[in-house]
Structures are given as C-alpha cells and as structure tokens.
Computed example of a mutant assay.
Amino acid sequence: MMEVSASNNVSLREFGCEQNLLSRPDGSASFVQGDTSVMAGVYGPAEVKVSKEIYDRATLEVLLQPKVGPAGSVREQSQEQCVRETCEAALLLSLHPRSSLTLILQVLHDDGSLLSCCLNAACMALMDAGLSMSCLFCGVTCAIGADGDIIADPTAAQEKESRALMTFAIDSTERRVMMSSTKGSFSVQELQECVAVSQKASEKVFQFYRDSVRRRYSKNL
C-alpha cells in the first residue's frame, strides 16, 4: 500500500493492487482505493457466438457483479457501458477479429469512487492478460461539495454530501479524457476544473501502475 497525493490539493486515498490472482481467467487483478475494492477477470480472446460476431474486430462484453443482490440494475448497466467504451477505445480489438473478450468486475466493497476503481481494476487485468493496447487508462472520480470545493477520489459519505459527481477515464499518453460520466448540477468552469484535477491525479495513478508492475516482475526475476 502507498499513500498518494498531488499538488494543488489533489489528494487520493491509499492504493493497493495485485495481479494474476485467479487461475481460471486469462488475466486478473484486484484494485483497492481506500475502502473501495474491485476484482477484475478477463477471459479471451475466445470463440464468439455467431449472433455477436464482428468480422473485423473482437466483441467485448463487460459484466459488473454487485457485492450483494442480483446484477443488472440501471446504475450497474451504466457503469458497464462506461467501462466497455473505455476498454474499446484502448484495446487493439482489430487484432482479434471474430472472437470474444469478456471482462467481469466483482465489487468487493464500495466506499465511494466505485466507477474509477472499476476502471483501474479493468486496466490492470487487461495488462495481466497481455492484451495489446494503444494506451493504458485510469479512472478518477471528483465530487463537488455544496461549498464548491472539488474532492478527488471521494468516499461514499463525501459523495452523498456532494451536489455533483464526475468520473473520467484518462489515457496514459496524452492525459486526454476518453470517457466521462457525470451526475448533478455544475457549471462549465467546474467541469473544466474537475477535468484538470483528474488529469493531475492520473499522473499519480499511472505512477502507481508502474511501481506495482515493477514490484511484481522484480519478484518473478
């Protein structure tokens, strides 16, 4: 575990990550942000059902399993779509035509910033599976408090008290926004400020990725 903080008052909760935890998937990872934790498993490239086959690229399916209760709520479907769109933008799916990739995300604990934690777990699992990507990506969630303060990587309690919540997927090469999910009321300026905070915070997440992978392979060598 390591403490992460950035300048301009961008502070993030402690991160933790482990790759290659599960034996059955082709790639797996767990990602922890504070008390929020998600396990991700990647299966494929594998055979695809004819009805879902795409002739020039792989078909990607994302399934989000909640900690309790049945899957498939509107919130989960929205989060699945956000993760899928981000993964499709990063993966070189044309290398695997007429095949399927499945990404399963299991929520272990949700204490805020769940979508960004899902994105981070997904990226680490895709890396573990050895899939070709044009870039890495990470998720950063920002909450805007009633007083207008921007909180990066908010807890569930901070989310509850906020008037707006935004999650961005940031790419590792140009720090551009690949996907955004927003809720609540905010001005254009506040949106731009949250993007800037997320881009700043992403530097810390990508550094954590590098350190995490370096630690893993130094153990294996």
Rank of each mutant, 00 (worst) to 15 (best):
V48T: 03
L126T: 09
E85I: 06
A129E: 01
K49M: 00
S30A: 08
L119G: 07
S218W: 07
P154A: 00
I104D: 12
D171M: 13
R175H: 13
P66R: 00
L191C: 05
S162G: 14
D147E: 14
G41M: 04
A169T: 06
S212K: 07
H96G: 08
E53P: 02
G130K: 00
L105C: 15
S116D: 14
E47L: 10
G130C: 03
V213C: 07
A201Q: 09
K52R: 12
K67M: 05
K200T: 13
R216E: 13
A125V: 02
R163C: 05
M2F: 04
A29D: 00
T173H: 11
S181I: 02
D128G: 08
S73G: 04
S11G: 15
R75T: 02
C87K: 13
A90I: 04
S37H: 11
E161C: 14
S212R: 09
I104A: 13
V213A: 09
F15T: 06
F137S: 11
Q192H: 07
G139C: 08
G112K: 06
I54S: 14
C17R: 02
N8R: 15
E161I: 10
V213H: 09
R57S: 13
E61H: 02
G72P: 05
H109E: 15
Q192V: 06
S99C: 01
P97H: 03
G145V: 02
V32C: 10
S51T: 10
M133G: 00
R24N: 05
G184R: 05
S78I: 10
N120C: 11
S5E: 12
A125S: 09
Q65S: 14
V68C: 01
L21G: 00
A129S: 01
V83M: 10
V197W: 07
F206N: 06
N8G: 08
C135R: 03
R13G: 07
D56Y: 14
C135W: 05
R216L: 13
M39G: 11
Q77A: 06
L191R: 10
N220I: 10
L115I: 01
S202F: 08
S212D: 06
G16M: 09
I170G: 05
C87G: 12
T155V: 00
M127W: 14
M124L: 14
G44M: 00
